[in-house]
Design a protein around this nucleic acid. Sequence first.
DNA 1: TTGAAAGCGCTAACAC
DNA 2: GTGTTAGCGCTTTCAA
Lengths: 346, 346
Amino acid sequence: MEAITIKDIARALNISTSTVSRALRNSYEINPETKKLVMEYAEKMNYRPNPIALSLKDSKSKSIGVIIPEIANHFFSQLINGIESIAYNLGYHVVIFQSHDSYEREVANTNYLVSRKVDGLLVSLASLTTNLFHFQDLMERGLPIVFLDRVPKEIETHKVVADNFDGSYQATSHLIQTGKRRIAHLTSPIYLSITTERLAGYRKALEDNGIPFDESYVRYCIYGGKVVAENEEAIGELLALPEPPDAIFTASDRLTTGCLAVLQKRRIKIPEEIAIVGFTNISVAELLNPPLTAVVQPALEMGQQAVELLIRLIEHPQKKGDYEIRFLQTSLITRESSVGKQALKT
Amino acid sequence: MEAITIKDIARALNISTSTVSRALRNSYEINPETKKLVMEYAEKMNYRPNPIALSLKDSKSKSIGVIIPEIANHFFSQLINGIESIAYNLGYHVVIFQSHDSYEREVANTNYLVSRKVDGLLVSLASLTTNLFHFQDLMERGLPIVFLDRVPKEIETHKVVADNFDGSYQATSHLIQTGKRRIAHLTSPIYLSITTERLAGYRKALEDNGIPFDESYVRYCIYGGKVVAENEEAIGELLALPEPPDAIFTASDRLTTGCLAVLQKRRIKIPEEIAIVGFTNISVAELLNPPLTAVVQPALEMGQQAVELLIRLIEHPQKKGDYEIRFLQTSLITRESSVGKQALKT
DNA sequence: TTGAAAGCGCTAACAC
DNA sequence: GTGTTAGCGCTTTCAA
């Protein structure tokens, strides 16, 4: 009842295993008759090569590892869908691991995937990762890695990111155009690429519109809003400012929903008292109360392009230094949380 | 720069590979000195055994395969978190695959995982799966499988499910208590266990309250609401009934959000004209417009219990027929979509 | 055109 | 206590 092997076929047909192997992999020098015989028998017995043996043999596995902060987040699960769809078509399997934003788990996952002989790695950095040696080391040893979304400045390889600067710039400009002036920014830890890029876009939009950048309107949430208290505290501080904000631009899913929850609890009217724009791919933005204005990333495409780059790297190793960074456009979807029902109708 | 092997250690220390192996795996008969030597050198060289070789050797991989319909769904991603947390602690790795509710992909994923020598399988059935041979076959060959959430009647093994009947019963009773009488049920394909269980609870609640069950109030969505048109059509049909429903009980995330979107589009007042209760773990139920009354499943615990059962099965193969089915309680969280703001305040 | 043999990394039965 | 050897499934020289 065990899986059939090349050996079984050889024995049954009274030929050698190497002949069977050649027949199966369509080698050039082989008697068509023998080949036919083998193929038919293999088909009949439903033979499947053992991928473990193959991996052991040549350290290739036709699989790629994905390391992301978490799955329970629409942006990342869309990313995965994009990754899977392409990988599947190109004959690669995808193995997913979550770092839960922990540096240790990111390292552990990386090691495991490497020992499992994945052919390449797709990574979105954990928010607590500052040391990149585990990736640098692998790259030097020749393992293809492509980063996406949360990418390291220090490592040279293909990268796929949303145009975070522009997305932020648009969101902030939009708030300014609707008459807001004291725009706060609730964001993730500062050492993430997405944080600095989004912050820069926010800042530039303010300055382009003659509003001075004020650091006290910016709050960094080290847990990215995953800890409720953190959200409450940050927003509490903002509201306690001498001139509390009249708008909040939130930088992630969790920060956005957390912010909405806190404002709702405090019975603050959105957008009249405080307008909200979120940098988020949350699926039900339309159904929220109020419907949420959002900067949406093309997560699916990001995933697709990243695997394509990775697989290209795997199959055609290229000279160093010839890497590309792809910026994908975000889109601002305007809803009531920033402009109100009345304004939206006109 | 390649990974160091047992052979390298043997050569360096001028001993045999088997001695190294013994030292490393703490075998009984070995000279403490030799052992120390080996251990230190291995440590120094950062030796890591090659799991591929181990798998090839004894067809064990210390990893378990998970096959679920999709990741981009809060219920399933919470399930995965539960699974991962426990598996990680017990030294197992988790490999996740999505069936996208397709029978073919479920079979393909299963085959792949098996060929990769996972030690066991955790499965939530695709909605389009009716033939279970791929699982039955594996079980007969001795592969441990535990089903969760969407489970097959025909296969005897451990199963972990929410108490779907009771959850539905509660939801429906709740709607009846708030004065609704024409309660529709929007649900998934009929051959899923969750569908029949939830339908039964709904039906029983109606009958216990003297309301006759009316098949025309039940709509089965073959794509589970993933296709927007399907939702719209189903709800359109319900609204076109001579006596349109005054409440809708929706059986899944997608069906719930889809239903809300359609009602909102048609400017139907919730809950005054139609009340909504969803069987859903959606994370932002509180923030929806209106806040959503939901039957919530203990997804995390379900995942945890399922892996525990699976790993127990892997490590202590047991006699057939001694399987358990665990029912975990759901909780009904009442919000405005079923009772309205006024009623909720009192 | 085919077969024999070695090797990928590791373990274990069997010698010594 | 340690070394030798075979074998997990497969590919690939090297010979014939």
